[in-house]
């Protein structure tokens, strides 16, 4: 038995663009690649980020798949013991399938601007060149030092 509880923030059949304001979570429990439970839960808008994270912790989830997420919230999620797959985009069913088969890091599921492939740059995946302009190079990982 290898049961895992996964949460996906969804909107219009796709992964919701921003976790910080996402209104709906799809909770899926899988055993291997078999879906045992699949339901929608609403995350009310205008509640604090701590409550938002606490709501997921209460659901006892192991992993979260979401779109863009701001850094403090990402940190809260990780500190709560949740494995976070952030800056993910695409049809929710395809994303779920990719997660279960190990293909989530493939290009079609990575949000634009978040790098190409496994060793790409940024958006919660680590270091590297962050494009141009203001504040670039400040990812979650040991990014380029600002000058």
């Amino acid at each position: 038995m290898n049961k895992v509880r996964i949460a996906l923030t969804v909107w219009n059949g796709r992964i919701a663009p921003v976790f910080d304001v996402a209104g709906t979570v799809r909770l899926v429990e899988v055993d291997g690649e078999i879906v045992i439970d699949d339901r929608l839960v609403s995350l009310p808008h205008s509640t604090g980020m701590m409550r938002r994270v606490a709501a997921l912790v209460e659901e006892n989830i192991d992993a979260l798949v979401c779109g863009a997420v701001s850094r403090p919230v990402h940190r809260m999620l990780v500190d709560s013991g949740i494995k976070v797959h952030s800056f993910v985009s695409g049809e929710e069913d395809e994303v779920l399938k990719a997660l279960l088969t190990g293909g989530l890091e493939e290009n079609p599921f990575i949000m634009p601007g978040c790098g190409m492939g496994r060793n790409g740059r940024g958006c919660g995946r680590g270091a590297g060149n962050r494009g141009k302009g203001r504040n670039r190079g400040r990812g979650f990982g040991p990014g380029r030092k600002e000058v």
């Binding site: 663009p17 985009s89 601007g113 302009g133």
Partner: peptide, 25 residues
């Protein structure tokens, strides 16, 4: 510059997934 998304990656993608704004939903 503002979004950090190169044009080549933005063209043809869903605007909510490029712009990623608190207003999208």
């Amino acid at each position: 510059e503002i979004t950090g998304v190169p044009r080549a990656e933005a063209i043809g993608r869903e605007c909510s997934e490029v712009f990623r704004s608190s207003m999208c939903e």
